[in-house]
Nucleic acid binder design. Structure first.
Lengths: 240, 240
DNA sequence: TCCGAATCTGTACGGCGTACAATTTGTACC
DNA sequence: GGTACAAATTGTACGCCGTACAGATTCGGA
């Protein structure tokens, strides 16, 4: 007692210097994910990428799932907080920026999108993104609680869109241009037997477009309409 | 030539009688999924469950992924087509039934929800569900193309809600009662550091409720509002 | 100086999906 | 009725996987 040991959080630990860091491990994992797909992201694969024995990673992360959770959360966190907080810009525009940014960052790493959908969005960066969305909606004039309601419906919509779009992508390689993906999807739906799936086949153009940015924005506008139009306010009390 | 062999599709194949069927394999897989979680659903595990060598399954399905795809599609298909088509009932009510039913069927098998989100919804039953949704919206008075637009926004919302809710569940065991899950989630959010996540901590009650049926319905109403309110019609042309 | 904690490595275990080569079982044709 | 051949199942094997465990090594602190 009385010894002036530093706070244990910052004190240098005994033992050999660490060769790696959480950052380089996550970076290696993301590289593998992008270049060789979700199945290539293994503890052994990451270790090989880093020139290290597989077990070395277990001093940085308790298990493989923790590596993947961290990877996804970092990806969520790469947003432009300043632009979202700029009260000089119309709030709908800022909501679009947040939504489009999150969607784009995840779809740029198709394997990561699948990971996002399999685990709760409860990492520090995910929570911060939520804070920014709620704050943005509150600035737009919504009461604090209403802002949280609206924010969550938006998050549900964004998650759904990411799920829909990521399901079409090969997690082993970067996404082809959007127009190309839409065209492929359109061809697939148009080729369905029209006697069994008449509306789907006839609506192939529309359906195919829903994995694209244009329809994502359009749907986002409709959801925002539903959340802000006059009738909606009175029904808010029907929340559970 | 001239021999009266039956159509090759129905002709009995040579070789020993098949001891299994796609049905029993999928059923065994679902049983494992529910009782022991996603990781327990392995080719070897299913085969053991059926008292058969692992490789026996490969005459019924080309690989493990095909088993899982089939499993999810069957689950999607277990809806009440007649109730959805009953034009005597208000269309909003029927949309709710379709959405709530799909959500409930998938969340009843938490592991299956994760599978749904990882692959395109392009199985025969998924396509039929789409047909029914589109038809329902068309009966509600929407033009055919508008019905497809609206149907897809609804599907995105439903997918997002399933993703949000399934992420909280332990895929190894049945979901606890909803109230219990919401309470646990509320406690988690309320315990966050209020200095860093003020709005999230303050809105814990609201946020927690979003994994529940009540908020699912409320959000669904808002999305339907956005898709049908007067301003929306004029903006439809902004679709990509 | 030496204790003990923190790294990292080597090895090993039990699991996985599935390819390959028998073996068995049935149909179809001579 | 015999026989060729296709289909179903099994046994075995390969190369992966996550990670537990037991050293060996390296450092900070007393």
């Amino acid at each position: 007692m009385g010894s002036d040991q530093q706070a244990s959080a910052t004190r240098r630990r005994p033992g050999p210097r660490r060769i790696l860091s959480e950052e380089v491990i996550v970076a290696a994992a993301l590289r593998l994910l992008d270049e060789r797909g979700a199945e290539a992201v293994s503890i052994r694969g990451i270790a090989a990428e880093l020139g290290v024995a597989p077990n070395a990673l277990y001093t940085y992360f308790p298990d493989k799932a923790a590596v993947l959770r961290t990877l996804v959360d970092r990806l969520i966190g790469e947003h432009d907080a300043e632009a979202l907080a700029d009260v000089g810009r119309p709030w709908r525009e800022r909501v679009h920026e947040l939504a489009l940014g999150l969607r784009a960052r995840l779809l740029a790493h198709p394997g990561a999108a699948a990971l996002l959908l399999g685990a709760p969005m409860d990492g520090p960066q995910a929570l911060l993104l939520g804070e920014r969305l709620f704050a943005l909606l509150a600035e737009a004039g919504l009461d604090d609680d209403v802002a949280v309601h609206a924010g969550y419906v938006l998050i549900v919509y964004i998650l759904g869109a990411i799920a829909l779009e990521a399901a079409e992508l090969d997690p082993a390689r970067p996404a082809p241009p959007e127009a190309e993906r839409i065209a492929a999807r359109r061809a697939g739906f148009a080729a369905l037997p029209a006697d069994r799936y008449p509306r789907t086949a006839a609506g192939a153009d529309t359906i195919a477009a829903y994995i694209g940015t244009g329809q994502f924005r359009w749907g986002l506008e409709r959801v925002l309409d539903g959340l802000t139009h006059p009738d909606s306010a009175g029904r808010r009390s029907r929340a559970l």
